[in-house]
Nucleic acid binder design. Structure first.
Lengths: 205, 205
DNA sequence: AGAAAACTTGCACTTTCTGCAAAATTTCCT
DNA sequence: AGGAAATTTTGCAGAAAGTGCAAGTTTTCT
């Protein structure tokens, strides 16, 4: 349904990837996405500015495209796992299975993170993507818990899981040599299990 | 420091409020903030378009201005409470003390929430403000827990607290007759205390 | 091959947002 | 009160985003 392998589909995917990569390249080169125009990106990818806007609504979306891809896959993973595992474990394992560390070059990840943290427009866009992630996952979680719309529980668990994911991810990017990403994620989830709300002893764990 | 009561200061505050209110009025009238231009807002408030941009970077900021004010106050409240209370309680009580229900007309709140949920630009902007709130509070929480930058714990607790706040707020807006806002917030925080990660019995609580 | 469907492109247009410099207003000091 | 100094308002110019439309290309399907 999504990717029939006709010439047309392949070309579109290639163009989209080219635009996304061009955005990244230029943003790094010019030291920030704000110094890059949609026209620059289109030129770098060899298409017209109008075509760029056919693929992405704006440059932020182009830069964060792959992150978006991964969350889409994660939604599917959560749905499948939630059928066979307790919810919390399903969420945790789906997050671990994102395997950001294996799919991307570490330097590139760090680079992209720097770009995001230094541009309000990117921060804003990333926050929005996270919200979309939340909303898409919410239906699954609500169903899995057997609660209704009337109940806060689904949103609270899901929120906790996504916070754990985000914090783990950031921590790993800042301290990559400390532990592998999957362990960091597991650790973050574990802290919620043992009760985040109680002040813990300051054993660095 | 912030508000000396010279004529100039008072006028500026008045203009800012007028612009914010004008934005709200027009957004409701035209059924969405996207149908309102910065020029419309300036005209409604009786200033030039250029002046509007001296006060706010964009219309989204103008519409969400009061929410921003409140989070600024809440940061202060958290800082003070964190000196005298256990962290989790400090966060909870500071959130309860925001008293959104008393400060605003309920219909207006619901209206504004509808506006936000139906406009990508507003969703994006609100998400960004939430992130700023997070970052400002993070320093306080980190200090209060006696943990260092190296540790995920501060971000996890704070994340949990802000999720609780946001979820409670949304729930109350959707079901206002069920319980007063402060109780809903307390309830959300309580669910984190009793362990969100374990599936609970479906007693609607 | 040739019609139909889908994609690309250029163009026109509205809107946002910023810098700059001139005018207007408020404040401050004597 | 009066005038210099500081601050604010405003208009104008300009870069860039983003969208609709229609014409031109390319791919698909039979």
């Amino acid at each position: 349904m999504a990717d029939q392998s006709g010439l047309r589909e392949r070309k579109k995917a290639a163009t989209k990837a080219a635009l996304s990569h061009a955005t990244m390249r230029l943003a790094i080169e010019k030291g920030g996405i704000d110094a890059v125009t949609a026209e620059d990106i289109a030129a770098e990818a060899g298409v017209s500015a109008r075509t760029f806007h056919n693929y992405f609504p704006n440059k932020e979306a182009a830069l964060l495209h792959d992150f978006n891809e991964i969350t889409a896959q994660t939604i599917v993973a959560i749905r499948e796992r939630a059928r066979e595992q307790p919810l919390w474990e399903a969420l945790r394992d789906a997050c671990i299975d994102m395997r950001i560390d294996e799919r991307f070059d570490f330097a590139t990840l760090q680079c992209k993170d720097d770009l995001v943290h230094s541009s309000p427009s990117l921060i804003s866009h990333q926050a929005t993507q996270f919200l979309e992630f939340f909303n898409e996952a919410l239906d699954i979680v609500t169903e899995a818990t057997g609660r209704d719309e009337h109940d806060m529980y689904p949103r609270l668990v899901l929120g906790a899981a996504l916070i754990a994911l985000k914090v783990a991810h950031e921590h790993w990017l800042a301290h990559p040599d400390e532990a592998p990403l999957d362990e960091v994620i597991a650790d973050a989830f574990e802290q919620f299990e043992s009760g985040v709300t109680r002040p813990t002893t300051t054993s660095n764990n």
